[in-house]
């Protein structure tokens, strides 16, 4: 099993470190051909406008939009969650439309509002550490979307089929709970 990590811009190395710690193989995805060699894809944190441009330039947008959730399980964090959404606001922006949710960019404000908190997810009784960096907010989720964690009542970790999206950065912590769960989704052994 090989986990692809979109490596055009952002904290893709942090995801790599976490996934390799869990014993899975990884490969960086920078072009459409790289997608053929992986069983799943991580969309890392970073700047969604920059990443979106690379997805278009490299011809990655279409294949990910077509295969996502079907033959390609995906895990997106922060910017990655923005790319996965059906609708993006503040401002409106193209997206893969793979998770039935509306995401508002930079909804908590500029960097000065970034923070580390702890929160409960449906994955464990123990709170896990959550790093929010210029985070987006999930404003709405459709009926097919499972909300796995909330902050101030707003969803922050959601799943639709084999696609997982977090508005925070589990890859910037030592806690592997969410990445382990994603690997289970990839192996289809929930």
């Amino acid at each position: 099993m090989k986990i692809g990590i979109l490596a055009v811009q952002g904290d893709f190395e942090a995801h790599q470190k976490m996934i390799e710690r869990l014993g899975a193989e990884t490969a960086f995805v920078k072009a459409a051909a790289d997608l053929e060699a992986v069983d799943a894809l991580v969309l890392p944190g970073g700047e969604s406008t920059t990443q979106l441009q690379f997805l278009n330039d490299e011809g990655l947008f279409q294949p990910i939009a077509e295969r996502g959730g079907k033959t390609l399980p995906i895990f997106g964090t922060c910017a990655g969650a923005i790319l996965l959404a059906k609708e993006v606001k503040n401002p409106a922006q193209a997206s893969l439309g793979l998770v039935d949710m509306t995401v508002v960019r930079n909804a908590y404000g500029p960097q000065i509002e970034s923070c580390v908190t702890r929160g409960i997810t449906t994955l464990s009784d123990q709170p896990i550490e959550m790093v929010f960096i210029r985070a987006p907010m999930i404003e709405r989720v459709g009926p097919g979307v499972e909300v796995m964690a909330r902050r101030d009542d707003k969803p922050i970790l959601v799943r639709q089929g084999r696609i997982l999206a977090a508005t925070f950065h589990p890859e910037l912590t030592e806690d592997a709970t969410i990445h382990s769960y994603f690997l289970k989704l990839v192996r289809d052994e929930r």
Partner: peptide, 14 residues
């Protein structure tokens, strides 16, 4: 500190 370095991490590759 982690939040500060976290934003720097997000800018990598850019």
């Amino acid at each position: 500190w982690r939040v500060k370095v976290g934003l720097a991490e997000m800018l990598k590759g850019g």
